[in-house]
Amino acid sequence: MATQTIEDRLRAEYFSLLPELVRVRERLEAEIRYHLLPITQELVRYERILISARVKGCISAIDRLRRDMEFRTFAEEVPEKYSLLDLHDLAGVRVSVFPQSRLDKVHDLLTAHFREWIPDPFPYEATGDFRAYKYHGHSEASKVVVAEFQVVPIVIGLFWEVEHDALYKPLPELKGIGDDLEMRDRSAQVLRALRAFEDEFEKLVTRGNAAGPKLSN
């Protein structure tokens, strides 16, 4: 009989977990949308809150587990050591917010509800000078799956989506490119440019709103 590789075992684990992952995603998204209603119902026209929910794909989940280890290679000596349940983002919700002044209110509302969830700060390389938050914990939909929610500035959230869909989705292994010293520097330049863009945009909107006709919701 052919030997089952660690990847085979992880694939089987993924598909046995999938229905639970979908339940976690749906529950978390619904709760977050509900708790943000006091804000989403009062946004003025230039303000945006995008809520996106997802379940990590099978290949992406296995690759993430591999990349989290310094060797980036599963050790055959200890196959039982590896489980997708070690990941904190198998199911997750991202709340992308503009402007930054709204971001803190969104963060306060969600942390008031998800009190038990553990902060998991983004590394500086990921968000630069932007304020951005990430938490993980158990939703009521599952005692075993750890889920994640993020509150991030909209320019970062959309940049990550473009980066993910255009570059990494076809081949998740490409994610390692982002850790090259030169690439980190290029990413830092993008973050600085996005920050300057958002700051200027917000400044002009705020000034224009004060001087001209009030932008209504």
Binding site: L174, G176, D179
Partner: peptide, 8 residues
């Protein structure tokens, strides 16, 4: 050289 798969 950088090996992005093994990140080394």
């Amino acid at each position: 050289a950088y090996d992005f798969y093994h990140m080394l």
